[in-house]
Design a protein around this nucleic acid. Structure first.
Lengths: 234, 234
DNA sequence: ACCTGAACACCGTTCAAGT
DNA sequence: ACCTGAACACCGTTCAAGT
């Protein structure tokens, strides 16, 4: 009677959706988005390209699942203790770090009509708003604003990584500064003014200060109006 | 002697980088990102696919140029008069409207290593900060936060349009709400709480309220601290 | 200098055939 | 039920040849 050991031509470990997505994440991290094809993925999984379609619907769904995975892991690792503002900062920075580690995921956010990854981000930031004393009727808008800001910063990480693969952050920032230096100073006065701050600024710190800016806006809304009265049309 | 009229086999109007990019924008608007290929573009321009390479470096540069064009047009149309906060709102809403009209441009932002379109957004929002009394040393950070927020919202517009091409906004929001309804309420309590607000909320209004939130944060930072003293470690 | 279009080396996806 | 891999219909890009 045939046992599993008698059939070595068949892979011992069965394929699964999880194994497919995990392998996709590994390729995306190592080779970037252009490195992931059904052929390279099939090769890594020691199977044929067609087998992958048994576990995922197609490449779009595969990319969405890969992004969803790394975002879920990032959010799952956040400690949920501490002061409200610190909790929100921790969620945001965990996502920032995830998008730095998996820059392809930032570009994917704008391409996922299912918005599952987007729902995770909304959930993670929205869950901190009660503790921040945001009124229930404002929470949807505030959470969306925070999620949009985080997604925008994620896109920047993606653009960083869209250059040559080996380029580190310092080299990228220097290259970007050089390109911006060539822009017409008459058309881009602000860009030229901040140009010298670009090469050595800390992206992560600047991202966190943006979260603090939104937090300050939340606090201002929560506190009673004590500023001088304005004209009614303001 | 041969004149121009003697050579009707040659197109009367010469190709140019501008004509190539304009045609690309038209195809992207009408057919979406998947509709733009060098073959469809060449056909529309009545030329061969290879001719396009004389005017642009390749598809990446073509997409970046297309996004840069629609963003430049949007920013160029903003009235620069009015109160500082209203000017910033006008810039932000002009960009929001541009990304609604050209959703492929939102997805492109995260894929452009040259960040020319990003520089335009940074310039447009940064140019309003003097009038908003933001300290010079804070302007880079504040402008980046605003640009990231706008880019994140642009990504949402792109995700909207990544679905079936004919899908209008109401249908898309209903579809998204239905998908989110199937998420585990134990894992996504916040998403379930806001679910009933999703189908009929106004994206544009919500986007504007996010700008107002950041504006409130700016104002709070500008004003002297009058809130009760906090522990030093806060 | 600018354009043409066939050719090249891919790619996502399908599907008849296997186990 | 799950896997295989050849085949199909593309795609971006190159390039010898034209004008």
């Amino acid at each position: 009677m045939a046992t599993a050991a008698d059939r070595p031509s068949r892979r011992a470990d069965a394929l699964s959706r999880e194994r497919v997505v995990t392998a996709a994440v590994e390729i995306l991290d190592a080779e970037g988005e252009s490195g992931l094809t059904f052929r390279t993925l099939a090769k890594r999984l020691s199977t044929g390209a067609g087998a992958i379609y048994w576990h995922v619907q197609g490449k779009d769904e595969l990319l969405a699942a890969a992004a969803n995975t790394v975002i879920a892991v990032a959010i799952g690792g956040v400690r949920t203790r501490g002061k409200p503002a610190a909790r929100l900062r921790a969620v945001a920075l965990a996502l920032f770090d995830a998008f730095e580690a998996h820059p392809w995921a930032g570009a994917q956010l704008a391409r996922d009509p299912s918005r599952l990854a987007g729902a995770r981000i909304l959930e993670a930031v929205g869950g901190t708003l009660d503790a921040l004393a945001v009124a229930p009727e404002s929470q949807f808008a505030v959470a969306s604003a925070l999620a949009d800001y985080i997604a925008g910063a994620a896109g920047l990480s993606a653009a960083h990584a869209a250059g040559p693969p080996g380029l580190d952050r310092t080299a990228f920032l220097e290259a970007a500064a050089q390109r911006w230096e060539r822009l017409d100073p008459a058309e881009f006065p602000f860009v030229h003014r901040i140009l010298r701050q670009v090469p050595d600024h800390d992206d992560r710190e600047q991202f966190a200060s943006g979260i603090d800016l939104i937090l300050a806006g939340i606090e201002k809304r929560n506190s009673p109006r004590i500023s001088p009265a304005r004209p009614a049309r303001a």
